[in-house]
């Protein structure tokens, strides 16, 4: 464990909690892409199947359980409890355009052609593009609630910190996973435009509205 991975995980946890609290407190999922949240639930489900087969550390197990529970709770709030506030007209990204290439890539490019390894690879590739429906929805509505931008900031920050974690691990531990690094780079690059708007607008107290 290193400081980049720990702060990255905590940033990820913060994002997940911020979103869950936003929906719960405002009793509304306006502006939130349910499709992205379903994809995140799928990412955690396919990546954390090893919860039952291998124990790495208490931290690892506890965080995985929290992520999975929060992901499904968020999906439930969006499509169940507060579905009346779900803005389906703007959450129209065709997720099959993400799932099909990700499945193909996971089958073709992986570390080992074994079920758990392919599921892990699928989850890594899917996570790198899972935010697209959310970013697409914001571009369609032309704006985002400030709390939603904080959610996106911490979500984008987490994988950015993981990039530094991988540099650290390569340098100090000789650990290197090309699949995770390339997918993590793609994931972080997708946030660049948002990061720019967040820093130049939201942090200056303005509302995030598009076109910039």
């Amino acid at each position: 464990m290193n400081i980049f991975r720990l702060t990255g995980d905590l940033s990820h946890l913060a994002a997940i909690i911020i979103l869950l609290l936003k929906i719960w407190k405002t009793r509304s999922c306006a502006g939130i892409s349910g499709k992205s949240q379903i994809l995140f639930a799928l990412v955690f489900t396919t990546r954390y199947l090893d919860l039952f087969s291998s124990f790495i550390s208490l931290y690892n197990t506890v965080m995985k359980v929290i992520y999975i529970m929060c992901a499904y709770a968020t999906v439930y709030l969006i499509y169940g409890k507060f579905k009346a506030t779900y803005d389906g007209n703007h959450d129209t990204f065709r997720v099959e355009f993400l799932l099909i290439p990700v499945v193909l890539l996971a089958v073709l490019i992986n570390h080992a052609f074994a079920p758990m390894e392919i599921l892990w690879t699928f989850s890594i590739y899917l996570e790198s593009v899972a935010i697209l429906p959310q970013l697409f929805m914001i571009s369609k509505t032309g704006e985002a609630e400030t709390i939603t931008t904080h959610y996106l900031f911490f979500l984008g920050l987490y994988r950015t910190l993981y990039l530094f974690n991988w540099i650290w691990r390569f340098y100090f531990e000789g650990f290197f996973d090309l699949i995770a690094v390339v997918a993590g780079l793609v994931q972080t690059i997708l946030y660049c435009d948002f990061f720019y708007l967040y820093i130049t607008k939201v942090l200056k107290g303005k509302k995030l509205s598009l076109p910039a």
């Binding site: 995985k64 992986n110 570390h111 080992a112 052609f113």
Partner: peptide, 10 residues
């Protein structure tokens, strides 16, 4: 493919 890299990351 390469041997399985340890999956200790979240």
């Amino acid at each position: 493919g390469d041997d399985d890299v340890p999956k200790d990351e979240l």
